[in-house]
Design a protein around this nucleic acid. Structure first.
Lengths: 191, 191
DNA sequence: GACTTCTACCTATAACCTTTAGGTAGTTTG
DNA sequence: CAAACTACCTAAAGGTTATAGGTAGAAGTC
């Protein structure tokens, strides 16, 4: 009875790979068992079930992205920092589509609180140091940046911009231009 | 043998209701059959399967949103039109979370081409008539608006902004302010 | 080095969802 | 009013989730 060397971590990373290959919602306990050439029930010693597996993948993705974002933003400011952060999300989503959609999984409050989610918020906020924004506009801007990045990436990933000129790479650059200009020129509330 | 009065349309709208109640990915042929108090196999005369059902719900949601967006944008221009369009998406997502996530379903190219997707693009483009944008910036702006709206709505729906000051309603208003300002002041490409 | 103990993985089982095939009872049409 | 159609059925096969309880190999103990 050769042992496959299962563990919660190995299952999580294998699940993440599986997600990237076949899509996050095709990630199933059975498919994972097949990948390890092991019976399904064996996974239940390491993972509580399919929901648990999915949230573990989501947490992994959030951490990985936060790590990359941290590196990318370090030592940069202004538009350069903005572009670095945006590129992290966009590149990650293209290299790891399954993980990226996993990261969008709705987490229950406690899990979310223990996740790398807060790090993402802090990193985005750090970028705003290069721009002159006071509270509460800073928070508004954090949310707007998050929305724009996530929205762009998820629409592009979903094929929303596909096959029509101009290509999405230049739109992405112009989007970064636009967001940079917006932050430098943050408007007062409308009357 | 009383007839339940099934039809593809009734199944689709019932499926949409179900999605709003229990979440789009909990929409299952079995659950729908239960709702009509009918055996599962009976649905397969009206719907090809669970995938077919899901895309029908997605198409319905896209149409409903496009209808609402068309009404909302008519007779408005500039910031007013921008806010009207954004509010349509946001309100729709909050009233019909299941349908909204359904609308994000990745469609195969032919289905997408026959969907209301193009109407959404046209409506967004129509809004830009109130701003002075030439091509290709107009397309970039269409994509940016789509990203910002979708990103905001989906993060808010997923609880991303939850329970932290300032409240999401004012962030939403300030986001509209910001996008309006951005469109009025669209930047030239960075050097 | 034998003995316990832990761990990794197993078989078996039950519940649920999907999908297809083929049948029967209402409803509509000529 | 018979033929044809439609709406719904039973039956069955295959896949996924999940739990309970069992066995073999590895690790620690004397």
């Amino acid at each position: 009875m050769a042992r496959a060397g299962l563990s919660t971590e190995r299952l999580t990373t294998a699940g993440a790979e599986l997600a990237d290959e076949v899509g996050f919602d095709q990630v199933t306990v059975s498919a994972l068992a097949r990948r390890f050439d092991v019976k399904v029930a064996s996974l239940y010693s390491h993972v509580r079930g399919s929901q648990d597996l999915r949230t573990r993948i989501a947490l992994l993705a959030l951490e990985e992205m936060a790590d990359l974002a941290g590196e990318a933003v370090a030592g940069r400011a202004g538009r350069e920092a903005l572009a670095a952060l945006g590129n992290v999300y966009r590149d990650y989503a293209r290299e790891h589509p399954g993980r990226y959609t996993a990261a969008q999984l709705r987490l229950d409050p406690e899990t979310a609180a223990a996740s790398a989610g807060a790090r993402h918020a802090r990193l985005t906020r750090a970028i705003l140091r290069g721009y002159a924004l006071e509270e509460p506009d800073q928070t508004h801007a954090v949310r707007l940046l998050g929305s724009a990045f996530h929205g762009y990436v998820s629409l592009e990933l979903g094929g929303g911009f596909s096959h029509s000129a101009p290509d999405t790479d230049t739109t992405w650059l112009r989007t970064l231009d636009a967001l940079d200009a917006l932050l430098r020129n943050w408007p007062a509330p409308a009357p």
